[in-house]
Amino acid sequence: MKSTTSKRSKKAVTAAGKSARTAAKRLRSAKTVASPAAKRQAGTRSKRIPVRKGRALPAGFEAIERFVKRWALPTQNRRQARRRKSTTAELQDFYDDMLPVLPSILKHVDTFPLGELPQASQRLFFLALSLAEVAPHIELYRGDPNVPYAFEESRFVAEHGEKIG
């Protein structure tokens, strides 16, 4: 609700980012489909490292690395949207694996000052924030990906919705 100008421009940025991401995705899938060689090449060490780097979590959290792509999301709006688009089984799977490591995640992130997390730890923290978003749906709403008997969620505009963290 702070200056709608910034909200609008943020929206524009998000939209731009989205289309860029979509374009990149299309490009990637096109490559994959077009050339098995390219696919193989992507699997070679030199190509693989950046991808691997983008998914890596701090040592000890390898077991939940499989959630990074889907759930390491920087804003509440994106975490909320992802939760709403997920199936009950996906939410349950994420919750089941995240819950046991939650205390060690919180311990880990507190070895850094507030808001000063290195990249891999930041990713881990985003996963924990997604658990905060998902937990009520498993613990309270019987796996319903939406808040049951509630107002249309997208009509609530959160001033902090696009804030990172």
Partner: peptide, 23 residues
């Protein structure tokens, strides 16, 4: 950071309660 996480949980649940109220 852990307090920041705890606030996220509390606030998400409160948002959901407000969604219930507003319905």
């Amino acid at each position: 950071n852990s307090q920041r996480w705890a606030l996220e949980y509390a606030q998400v649940l409160q948002r959901n309660a407000w969604l219930e109220d507003t319905q």
